[in-house]
């Protein structure tokens, strides 16, 4: 399909905006689904996500805690991660 070059710029702008929106979205992965008040609590402690749109995903393998993702940045505050760290450190100590 031939795309008009004027359209191309237009499309690029549109998609870049979409990507930006997507990157501004925050995903919170937790072991169980979070209530609105819990999300608000988190928002008030982390200024970076205050004004952002927040999605909630559930992943039981985290055991407890949560992972906050924004774009390619990630803050891992899950029990799974801490256990992994412990495993790594105990390996290193040997």
């Amino acid at each position: 399909m031939k795309i008009n070059s004027l359209m191309k710029d237009e499309l690029k702008k549109h998609f870049l905006e979409k990507i930006k929106e997507k990157n501004d979205e925050v995903t919170i992965v937790s072991a169980y689904s979070l209530s609105k008040s819990e999300i608000d609590d988190l928002k008030s402690t982390l200024p970076e996500i205050k004004s952002a749109k927040v999605n909630n995903e559930v992943d039981e393998t985290l055991i407890a805690g949560y992972i906050i993702r924004k774009g390619s940045k990630m803050i891992d505050l899950s029990l799974q991660q801490q256990l992994r760290k412990l495993q790594q450190q105990s390996h290193e100590a040997v």
Partner: peptide
């Protein structure tokens, strides 16, 4: 080793 580092919130690039 666990006691040495205080847990702090750190964002990583993934």
């Amino acid at each position: 080793e666990l006691g040495a580092k205080k847990d702090q919130v750190k964002s990583t690039e993934v």
